[in-house]
Every structure is written in structure tokens, then in C-alpha cells.
Design a protein around this nucleic acid. Structure first.
Lengths: 146, 146
DNA sequence: ATTAAGTATTATAATATATAATACAAATAT
DNA sequence: ATATTTGTATTATATATTATAATACTTAAT
């Protein structure tokens, strides 16, 4: 998957990274279980700092979207976590913002829904649905720093 | 409209303000042409600085969503600006991110589209559609600082 | 003249973002 | 065993963002 960063824009690099990886997974460009580039590799390719990549990966890990294995690197591994209600509520708020903005910009209801359908169709449905087997690598951090 | 701010969250206050005003307009809680609170009033009510409110208002003005009249304050006044294609593309990217995240969180296509419909139905369609009359107060800033 | 509106200014502080250079821990590959 | 590769931690630095405070200015309604 090709990562393209806007270094002059207002969105932080690590967030651009995180968002593009999520969209890449949604498009199926990154298959489930597929390995992501190492932090060093991605940092070098993109011409950015390793810790910036690490920050993006950490965020994705916290969100339950990838797993990170210290010895093998990161891999796409979405896991449903948390209450489904909380989740839907959160998406509802974000969608409402988008819908309101669209409305204010003159995009009518039908146009908006057409865009929603088109977008939904472009998302690969290969993901969670079931699966709860290779979900063991999550609880591997104890408190230990030295 | 009630503004509730999360002072401990990660979203900047001025952005929370901006987002809530947009959602409020979408819901119809703020009618078209309706006046917004003055910066001082809103700042006092919310217990925040006037310049923070001003920053949110400026952002909304730049986005063509409100007008600001130095003597009468701010008012909801959405105006379509820019290429419709650019607009749709921008919304498309943002929707794709949302759809991808939803998918990865186990929300299936139908569930997602149901949420989209529900959200779209909750948005008041009273807005732009036509209207291009009271759009004169936009070009009132020359370059003058001292 | 007073008041009320947005805005500008100046200073300060805390936090976020990004980089650099290096080192460490843990496991694989040779 | 040794070298390599992985993520991670550390320390330092620089810049930008966010938010506040206190004050003053411009403009126009009252």
C-alpha cells in the first residue's frame, strides 16, 4: 500500500499514517493478518522518524486494530472490543457531524446517502464477523521497565 | 443550544465548539440566519477564554458556515463555496475512514447503512438548496494592522 | 456619551508534534 | 555463540498548537 503524507497540512503525520492504514485495511489492500512494514522500514520509506511511526502503530494497537509482536513486527488484526452500544453511539456522533456538514454544504439527503452506499460498497466485508482465535497477543504487557 | 465541553479530552476546546455548533445547525436547533451568542457571552457561559470562542467562530466563518458582523455578532449563514467535486471527494475520504473503522469494529454493511440513514433523517433539510442573497458580508477584510 | 460587538496585542504556560542519536530487550537467523 | 532484526525507551531539542489573562482598539447601535 502506498502511503502519501502531506507534510505541510494540519493533520499530524502519525494521524495521517494511522488513518491511511485503516482505510487501506478497509479497501482490502491490507489483508487480515497481513504484516505491516517495520517501523524502521516505513520510517525510511516515508522519510520520517521511527518514533512517529511507532506512535501511529501504538494508537492502532490501543484501538484493537493491529497487534504488535516485538519480534515479528506489526500485523493487521482487528478485534472488536468494548460495548457495541458505546461504539455505535460514537460512530453516530461522528456521522452526525459529517451529515450536518454535508447538509450545510448543499449536499442533500439523497446525495449523502448515495455517497454512504458507494463508500460502504467499497469496504471489504472480509473482516471480523467471527474470529476470536489469534487474539492472544494482546495481554502481553506487564509492568516492567528496567 | 446547550454546549458541553470535555476539558480533559484530547479534542481542542475550539474544535469541540465548532463541531457542536455544526451539529446543532444540522439538528435545526440553530435556525438559518439565527444569531449565535456573542463571544463574550459564550466564553462566560462555558467558562473559557473569549479568544477560544473567537477561534471557533473564525473557523466557521472561513468554512462558510456563519457570518460575523462586527457590530451585530455572529449568525448561522451556510454558504456553498468551492467546487462541488472537491467537496464530495473530501467527504468521500472522511466517510471512507468512518466506514473502514466501523467495518474493523465489526459493524457490518447493513448496520452501517442503517446508521447512515438514521443520521441523515435526523438532519434538517431546511438549509442551502438555493439562497445566495445575504452573502455580502464576506469580503470585508482588507490588510491593515496598525 | 455609553455600551456592546468583534478583534488585536502581549505575555505566559502547558501540551503536542517531530526529529536526532543512541541504547536496550528479546527473539530469529546464521 | 554471534550477528541481526524487531519494537521500545531515553534524552535532548525545536517548533507549533492550544489556552489563558489582561488590556486596548474599532465600529456602530443605543
Amino acid at each position: 500500500m502506498i502511503i502519501s503524507l502531506d507534510m505541510t497540512g494540519e493533520v499530524p503525520i502519525y494521524l495521517q499514517l494511522r488513518n491511511q492504514i485503516i482505510r487501506g485495511m478497509g479497501r482490502g489492500e491490507i489483508g487480515i493478518g497481513e504484516k505491516l512494514p517495520t517501523v524502521r522500514q516505513l520510517a525510511q520509506d516515508a522519510g520520517i522518524n521511527t518514533m512517529t511511526v511507532n506512535k501511529a502503530y501504538q494508537m492502532l494497537r490501543r484501538e484493537g486494530i493491529i497487534t504488535i509482536d516485538r519480534r515479528h513486527g506489526a500485523a493487521a488484526c482487528p478485534v472488536v472490543q468494548g460495548e457495541i452500544e458505546t461504539l455505535l453511539q460514537d460512530f453516530g456522533v461522528r456521522l452526525e457531524l459529517l451529515a450536518a456538514e454535508a447538509c450545510l454544504k448543499g449536499i442533500c439527503r439523497e446525495e449523502f446517502l448515495a455517497l454512504c452506499r458507494k463508500t460502504a460498497d467499497a469496504v471489504h466485508p472480509e473482516y471480523p464477523e467471527e474470529k476470536t482465535s489469534e487474539t492472544e497477543n494482546q495481554r502481553k504487557e506487564g509492568g516492567k521497565q528496567k
